[in-house]
Amino acid sequence: MSISSPAKSPTFRPSPHVIRLGLVVLFIAVLIVIGSVLTDRFARSTNFLNIYEQSTDLALVSLGQTLTILTGGIDLSVGSQISLLSVLTSGLINGDGSLVLPVCAGVIALGVLIGVVNGLGVVFLRIHPLIVTLGMGAVLQGVALLYALGPAGSTPDGFDALAYSRVGGLSVSATITVLLYLLVAFLMRRTATGRAIYATGDEPAAAVLLGLPVRRVTVLVYALCGFFCALTAIYLVSRFGTGQPYAGTYYTLESVTPVVVGGTMLSGGRGGVIGTLLGAYLLSVLNNLLNFMHVSTQIQLIAQGLIIMVAVSAYVERKKVA
């Protein structure tokens, strides 16, 4: 126990999370190599730009999902949120260009509000987040179907620019998504709130003892999740020209995949949003590659399931002894 000098600090050892990020990048690289070998059309810049664009929706939902999972929770209402918010977006705008801004603002506010209710449910009912958000999901799905049983409304000309416009070949929406990820990653690292999100997921009891704002943080992550669901819904409406009451169903469980593939632990407190972005790209590259191989969607599903299995099995840390 001698007085240490700072220079004595040990050689740099990457944290497990950094190693996982490395693995995901490596895996993406492997897929790209395989793709380039199989077909010369794969490794073209136009194709990469498509992959980049195609990752947008999943990356957006999963950004919010990452935050809830980092606190040790989960949001299973994301699918229904997207469904409801997407029918509302196109249904209320209904082709009227002057309504675009107010409706989008309202939809985002509603997404945040739904998230706040989820968060309050988790905090004050003290029920497992899975059950709170499952219940919320059912209610929202019902409301979405009450509003419209099928595709509703339409969007004015030019609304599709949101999803499809490109600058210098780069999809604008995908780039905005990346910027959002960088912003959230920065805030997670550099704000007290971000720190508190990690702490809450890591050791909830300790966070309470230290007087960290556990409740506020919990409500915040579900609210942010709602916010990103709203963005996803608006993006989907822009992409498909209309919203429909089942538009989001696919995302409920799907949004968890990039998160866990990106190395965030379902038990909370470990991982980060950048991993999720890489996870979303990995899935996007994989699907694109399988398309090139003329593999049917069914095989894509299988591949995706296997990736989850492999990823989570590989990431599991050796069980700590009692």
């Binding site: 990690y198 702490a199 890591d202 050791e203 300790a206 003892l209 230290l210 407190g269």
Partner: peptide, 8 residues
């Protein structure tokens, strides 16, 4: 019983 966060 320590009030520490093991992964910070």
């Amino acid at each position: 019983e320590f009030v520490l966060f093991p992964h910070l």
